[in-house]
Design a protein around this nucleic acid. Structure first.
Length: 783
RNA sequence: GCCGGGAUGGCGGAACUGGUAGACGCACGGGACUCAAAAUCCCGCGCUAGCAAUAGCGUGCCGGUUCGAUUCCGGCUCCCGGCACCA
């Protein structure tokens, strides 16, 4: 996962020293990387690195995983997965949703399987609070992470019950303890012990429990499915009143969240309200908001707002904070509850029943149990000739991989065939960059020099999972003494998604085949309306699946190499920078690439046409047109501002405006302006179109390496003007402009404005109520 | 459903803290150059009315604040990303 940007210096290309514009600018990416890495003090043997990075990577993944097991950061427990009852395999979420032509419409079941987890929740507090130490991260990403971690303050409380002669407690968690007197039922997950007990007594309940266990475990599915429930016939006692409360089984209660049970307050929770309406359960108002009228007829949003307790006995009149305090204190006195902080964040299940991924380094022995693979036997590597066929993990069918001996007792044993989530790999690859040649350790001291990453760039789709896992992994490595970092990424840029059209065709049976848009010809009628699409290779029609995120599975990605081959790297880069701000979603369309190509060719030609003039001019003689020079420095100011805020499309546009300006001032009369303008323009455009900028920079004798040149600075003196144009408005409507002296005072400006013919026309004898003057901007006459 | 984001011409987008909406470019139309084409250059280009000057309307929808709203506030609609096993 190297992810190097194609930010190459030009090869020493003979064509570029020529003043004939080359058709393309090319570069040798790997040669450049080697050179750069060497200059940074790395000695990388690239071929060797490619050949060895994967096993090296597995080795340290596995090594750290075993350390985590020792420290209790990694642990094993059962987890719930989506199970395909037809193929008897674990389903990926994507297969559940759209099938990719594999399992569309297949029944889905939940299944409990043993899995390895990483205790990310041990770091909840730090992962949340450390967001404040990341000013270089976008606010929206920090908000998403904070919501995902989901710290909430509430009360954990118990409903006592007696069952088969034993006393038990049904624990629930609530953020709304103030509504406790409104509890009219409790609901438990199908996997809850009380549900199991109820199912044992009643076959109808057993059938319902089975039904609940079918269906997806995905949060989005659970949240949108129809809420169903059944009474268990079991009762618990209200912890404060002692009233009998019936326990229900609800399909919307998840065993993996909180306690696997909830208290039902239909009076003040929208979901409970709908549930109570459906099953004719009592609904009680126990919170009053500004004495509004409560009605059982329909849900109102204010029912869920915080207010004062009513119909709650001794708690009546108390506000949210006071009632929660009082109720928590009373529960505590009875030993039936207390305040508790809970988190939405769950531990990270890293086991995957798939072939691609780092093997989990565990051996299962009949006598010794789960035995870690000894350090000197790491890495456990994958067989390289496995072919996944879509029916389960192929490692299970590989005797050569599966069969081994127990590291403890030496008897025949089996390897774990689950592999690690690939998010494990992406959680620390950036650390390894700083010490890729290190054979003896996971990372070494160089990491503390190079890291954290100054500027990290990735898609917005990684705002939560990848970025949170990386932060967690870094903190674990820190706590193990491997690195001295708290956070992996100082500044973060989240790109918007690049979308493209999806073309597909149903081939044999249900399987869908996807075609890259580059391989598809579009057909239009005489009005220019799209009428169809055909595959270039066989001329037969293909279907459009809409414009969506580029993905490998939908084969709608774009290879920038095609643009580079046709127009050169500078044009490809300039076009992409110009197309939209990096944070925005963009539907891919390369129609505009011709414009970028034209611009760079125009720049190249203009520079050479004016080369003699520019060479003859001296930079000291700023004798050119004052207005033009002011315009130049205004554009430079704008470009510098836009670079600062990373809005590169308007930087590209500023460089176009500068070329337009210089073209308007071509000729010997403006030699000084042209020289200064060209020197500014080349430096501004150099990060976007480095090859052409560097070549022209050298040819003009500005310096040997444009990357070493000082960044252009605005000459404040050039911005000063003697007369200022102010916008003239009457009643807020634009009615022309007036020209005033720089030194004009407010009264003078008002007079000039009122006297101007345009203002006179629109005032038309009406009474002038006031005149608003915004210095340097506008005058607004209110009549 | 929940969390985050978005909506401005035919298209991508611009308008920095409330102050000339549509910069810059694409596409399109007209012209110059050419035997012709390509390339290049010049002009036009939000909508409606008008020969024009100009006037009215216009930043997803409804309402509010303000001398003035793409920008601020309240309420919606639609679209995109994430929702823990695509990674």
């Amino acid at each position: 996962p190297m992810g190097w940007d194609a930010f190459g210096l030009p090869a020493e290309n003979a064509a570029m020293a020529n003043s004939v514009p080359p058709a393309k600018w090319t570069y040798d990416n790997i040669a450049y990387m080697k050179k750069q890495l060497k200059s940074l003090g790395f000695a990388i043997d690239w071929e060797r690195e490619l050949a060895t990075c994967t096993p090296q990577y597995y080795r340290w993944n596995q090594w750290l995983f075993l350390r985590m097991l020792e420290k209790g950061i990694a642990y094993k427990k059962t987890g719930t997965v989506n199970w395909d009852p037809v193929d008897q395999t674990v389903l990926a979420n994507e297969q559940v949703i759209d099938g990719r032509g594999w399992r569309t419409g297949a029944p889905v079941e939940k299944r409990e399987i043993p899995m390895y987890y990483l205790a990310i929740t041990k770091y909840s507090e730090e992962l949340l609070s450390a967001l404040d130490t990341l000013p270089g991260w976008p606010e929206r990403v920090k908000t998403m992470q904070a919501n995902w971690i989901g710290k909430s303050f509430g009360v954990r409380l118990a409903f006592p019950y007696e069952l088969n002669g034993d006393n038990g407690k049904l624990w629930v968690f609530t953020t709304r303890a103030d509504t406790i007197m409104g509890v009219t039922f409790c609901a438990v997950a199908a996997e809850h012990p009380l549900a199991t007990e109820a199912a044992r007594r009643d076959p109808k309940l057993a059938a319902f429990v089975d039904e609940c266990k079918r269906g997806s475990v995905m949060e989005a599915d659970v949240a949108t499915m129809e809420k169903k429930g059944m009474p268990t016939g079991l009762f618990v006692s209200h912890p404060l009143t002692g009233d009998k409360i019936e326990v229900w089984i609800g399909n919307y209660v998840l065993m993996s969240y909180g306690e696997g049970a909830v208290m039902g307050v239909p009076g003040h929770d929208e979901r409970d309200f709908a549930f109570a309406k459906k099953y004719k359960l009592p609904i009680a108002q126990v919170i009053d908001v500004e004495s509004r009228r409560y009605s059982l007829d329909a849900w109102q949003d204010w029912y869920a707002e915080r207010g004062a307790c009513v119909h709650s006995g001794k708690y009546d009149g108390l506000d949210f904070a006071k009632s929660v305090d009082a109720i928590a204190a009373d529960l505590k006195a009875k030993g039936l509850g207390d305040k508790q902080v809970t988190w939405r964040l769950r531990d990270w299940g890293v086991s995957r029943q798939r072939y691609w991924g780092c093997p989990i380094p565990i051996v299962h022995c009949a006598s010794c149990g789960d035995v870690p693979v000894p350090e000197d036997q790491l890495p456990v590597v994958l067989p390289e000739d496995c072919v996944p066929d879509g029916s389960g993990n192929p490692l299970n069918k590989r005797a050569d991989f599966l069969n081994t001996s127990c590291p403890k007792c030496g008897k025949a044993a089996q390897r774990e065939t689950d592999t690690m989530d690939t998010f494990v790999d992406s959680s620390w690859y950036f650390l390894r960059y700083a010490c890729a040649d290190q054979d003896g350790k996971m990372v070494d001291e160089r990491v503390n020099y190079w890291l954290p990453v100054d500027q990290y760039i990735g898609g917005i789709e990684h705002a939560i999972l990848h970025l949170l896992y990386s932060r967690f992994w870094t903190k674990v490595m820190r706590d193990f003494g491997l690195v001295k970092l708290d956070e992996p990424f100082t500044r973060l840029l989240t790109q918007g998604m690049v979308l493209n059209e999806i073309f597909s065709r149903k081939s044999d049976g249900a399987r869908v085949q996807y075609f890259n848009p580059a391989d598809v010809d579009l057909e239009f009628d005489d009005q220019g309306k799209r009428v169809g699409a055909r595959l270039k290779s066989d001329g037969k029609p293909v279907e459009s699946g809409g414009i969506r995120t580029m993905s490998k599975s939908k084969n709608n990605g774009v290879d920038p190499q095609a643009l580079i081959d046709q127009y050169g790297a500078d044009t490809a880069r300039f076009f992409m920078m110009f197309a939209s701000p990096p944070e925005d979603t963009l539907a891919w369309n390369d129609d505009g690439v011709e414009g970028a190509y034209r611009y760079l060719r125009r720049l190249w030609k203009f520079a050479h046409d004016q080369q003699a003039i520019i060479a003859a001019a001296t930079s000291a003689a700023n004798t050119g047109s004052k207005a033009a020079r002011r315009e130049l420095h205004l554009l430079l100011q704008q470009a510098n501002f836009d670079y600062e805020r990373r809005q590169f499309n308007t930087v590209a546009s500023a460089t176009m405006k500068i070329l337009n300006l210089l073209e308007d001032n071509a000729g010997p009369a403006q030699g000084a302006l042209l020289r200064e303008g060209m020197s500014i323009l080349l430096r501004l455009v150099s990060p976007i179109a480095p090859h052409i900028a560097l070549t022209l920079w050298r040819e003009f004798g500005f310096g040997a390496d444009i990357l070493e040149a000082a960044w252009p600075q605005v000459d404040e003196a050039a911005l000063v003007q003697d007369e200022i144009e102010l916008v003239l408005q009457v009643n807020g409507k634009h009615r022309g402009a007036i020209l005033v002296a720089r030194s004009a005072d407010r009264a003078g400006i008002e007079r000039l404005a009122l006297e101007s013919p345009s203002a006179q026309k629109h005032i038309a004898g009406q009474l002038v109520k006031k005149v608003i003057v915004v210095p340097g901007r506008l005058v607004n006459i209110v009549v």
